[in-house]
Design a binder for these strands. Sequence first.
DNA 1: CTGATAGTTAAGTGGATGCTTGACTGTTCG
DNA 2: CGAACAGTCAAGCATCCACTTAACTATCAG
Lengths: 106, 106
Amino acid sequence: MLNQGGSLDRVFQALADPTRREMVERLVRGPASVGELARPLAMSLPAVMQHLQVLEACGLVRTEKVGRVRTCHIEPGALRAAESWLSGQRTTWEHRLDRLGDLLDE
Amino acid sequence: MLNQGGSLDRVFQALADPTRREMVERLVRGPASVGELARPLAMSLPAVMQHLQVLEACGLVRTEKVGRVRTCHIEPGALRAAESWLSGQRTTWEHRLDRLGDLLDE
DNA sequence: CTGATAGTTAAGTGGATGCTTGACTGTTCG
DNA sequence: CGAACAGTCAAGCATCCACTTAACTATCAG
């Protein structure tokens, strides 16, 4: 569980944008080409590319080009890292509540 | 489970900053004053205040001023919202893998 | 009252972000 | 070959972000 912080920075930063979250939501259902990713989005193709680069740079997405089409897959590891930081915080918080309850029981 | 998308934006945006994550990590262990939050951080007090305002604006932290000291508590709901979006994505991803496995079994 | 403490406000700065348009590259199809 | 297709590069622009310093307010202790 090596928690290298800089990577969490980028993952959360990536997820902070609704367009990129929508792309992730699309990709967890299966791979897609850049064009397919772009179709439901109200913006130019280069803009989509830039979002894609952010997702790739933080490890949330992996892409591969064959012929003239680039196919994008989700990379669940990065998602898991973020989820696990959050659940760690929740756990600490809950432990604190437990200790507080124990104190009150005395 | 009201899906207020704009709020997720702000929560992830807030968590994208290492200073703010550090503040959250401190606060899940218990309440703290602004000064206590600031002590371990290598930056000016106004900078810490600004981070605090971001955390408060997205609902991650609640603060209350008594006398001249402002005390900050974590607000676990916002953390849970982010965690639950992430776990939803993971779940969808896993379901897809299941269906894929079923296909291969045929 | 006076001084120290705890926090706040305001203004400014440099750098990152999210988007655009226009020109361009490589690939496939007829 | 030549046209359409899928994607990419580059530049430019408006806005946002993370900080700073300086000046200020409010509270508490002696």
